[in-house]
Design a protein around this nucleic acid. Structure first.
Lengths: 199, 199
DNA sequence: GCTGTAATTGAACATCGTTCAATAAAGCCA
DNA sequence: TGGCTTTATTGAACGATGTTCAATTACAGC
């Protein structure tokens, strides 16, 4: 109808993202459609396009909230103040548990493939940086006296690796033989990597 | 029209897969549509559905050919008969070079997300196994006297990790700071992992 | 109560994957 | 050669998708 002003733009944005999360949790990425999100919040498609540039934009913002949750879970785990390798295990476990519990949503983090020279928005890179920062701190306090640059690079290598294990497991590209759990694989990675770094 | 019999089913299948590869290389995954593939090989949509169950099936078979190529490249590299860590570097480099040269196609390997209890077809798991087998051999000859199970598990962990680095790089989730190349990151991973394994 | 503003709608468009009755070309037999 | 059967191939049809935008309607101020 006409102007109702039941909700502000920002409220509609939040409602839509919430509804989208529920839809994805229920039916995975392919279940997410503009009309479904609109219907779930009691509006119509047109309204969504006042608040989001397009569906990709909505997905991107949803991914932002996923990264926030991921960061929060890892931060909570770090609060338990383990030290050394145990702290890295804890971070990896938090990451993996989230990925397995919320797998459709976590999967969506990689769904969007940027074009050749498109670049991620700054706010998104910042959220990614937070997660890596956490790993960096923990790694720094685990392997002694290495320079900052090495630590920062190693943290990225290590976390990309944890991520890789997670992805192949969850997307079932890794079942063949072995039969280890994701957690066990991550431990093996951390053990050897940290051992190697501390020579 | 009616029956032309210009090509056998198998020939049509190969033509379609070839055309699909070209389309993906040109415009990425989202450019791949049934009508485009059909037009490219001089048939209509209907014909595609005589040869493929659906578009997912086509993508799956295309992924099979990608795995074959990947395996071949890695095998060629191994023929140069390096040994030790150098051999692992060579495998990783072959993998990474392929991923970067054929990134839309390589990206497609992870595009399909299986449902909760769907399982990959055997022929696909076999192709995956081939790739891992190559890493296994190489790793076994690099770190001395470890039992087979440990090697096989470690090979999976290591390659999932290389894969993770590749994915985050190519999908631009990893630019922040550091500025290492994918290859350098993989070397760092292999160095530390192998060092750690050989205690 | 009237009017102007703007929030909201939903029909319209192009395109998608997928299906299947209709069609026309090839093979075959007399 | 001509007619009949077979079947490979077609393409219109269907429902659903993302996206747009003129039309509609509810509110705010006078």
């Amino acid at each position: 109808m006409g102007r109702r002003s039941d909700h502000s733009r920002e409220e509609i944005r939040q409602l839509a993202l919430g509804a989208a999360e529920a839809i994805v949790a229920e039916g995975g990425f392919k279940a997410l459609t503009a009309r479904k999100v609109a219907a779930a919040i009691g509006y119509t498609v047109g309204t969504l396009y006042l608040v989001f540039e397009n569906l990709d934009d909505l997905v991107f913002q949803l991914n932002g909230r996923t990264l926030d949750q991921l960061y929060q879970r890892m931060l909570d785990e770090k609060r338990h103040s383990y030290s050394g390798k145990k702290a890295l295990y804890a971070l990896a476990t938090a990451y993996i548990d989230y990925a397995e519990a919320e797998s459709p949503r976590w999967n969506m983090l990689l769904e969007y493939v940027a074009g050749k020279d498109e670049v991620m928005p700054d706010w998104y890179l910042e959220k990614l940086g937070q997660v890596f920062g956490l790993v960096e701190e923990t790694l720094a306090s685990t392997v002694g006296n290495q320079d900052d640059k090495t630590i920062s690079q190693a943290a990225r290598v290590l976390w990309a690796s944890v991520h890789g294990i997670c992805i192949l497991k969850i997307r079932q590209r890794l079942d063949l033989a072995g039969g280890q759990s994701t957690g066990e694989m991550a431990c093996m990675l951390i053990d050897n990597f940290v051992e190697g770094m501390s020579r």
